[in-house]
Amino acid sequence: MNDAMLKVESLSAWYGAARILYDLSFEVGRGEVVALMGRNGAGKSTTMRAIMGMIGQRQGTVTFSGEDISRLEPYQIARRGLGFTPEDRRIFSDLTVMENLDIGRQPARQFPDGAPAPSWTPERLFALFPNLAEMPHRPGGRMSGGEQQMLTVARTLMGNPLLVLLDEPSEGVAPLIVEQMANTIIELKKEGLSILLSEQNIHFAELVSDRVYVLEKGQIQWQGTMAQLSGSPEIQRTYLTV
């Protein structure tokens, strides 16, 4: 792997007295799609929230495109080009599709080496998500779960991120939508974006990811390439099923 976009070193996090993460260390390279896999409660969402600075009690170092972001506020982290798409979508239901997109809007930015990052406009996003193009003025609250899932990704892309944290994009949506989501991730990768994906659906992860970290009880239990995981039913059995 060449230059790491995101580097996490001994990240720990607590909710109240309960420790959720134990010294996690991992990296996401530029243009790479990395999957965090593991059961519910393994700490995938918490890892993402901790990286975004959304958990008060955390320790460890998070470096993003060469800068230490471990002490920054969520909005400061977002402004450095780290996008976050939460598992529960969190669409602003009173706002229309266009207004939701506008909330996510940030100026165009560059990679550390000066290359321009992919930049997004509503028009480009509507090309990527044709469903959304049909309903630019529909309030978020009146969209189906699948449409909301697309909108939440599109809203994050409006910030012209260098890397996106994508929390369980296949959760709770129909297989057809899951397939579209996989195609979207492949498109984004082609654009040069890095993606850290949290996922439980191995079939989905197989379609899009380069590498995998398997999380269990807040610790990394296994890491390797997606091909290694796909090729080894034994590893899958050990870490991904009860």
Binding site: M52, M54, E73, P74, Y75, Q76, A78, R79, F84, P86, R90, F92, S93, D94, L95, E99, N100, D102, I103, G104, Q106, R155, T156, G159
Partner: peptide
């Protein structure tokens, strides 16, 4: 206005507004 949209968005979910790069 964008300020107005931010107010409406924050009314629903202030944490998410922050995660999208807005200084809450």
């Amino acid at each position: 206005t964008r300020f107005g949209r931010l107010i409406r968005a924050a009314t629903q979910d202030r944490e998410m507004v922050g995660a999208l790069g807005v200084n809450q």
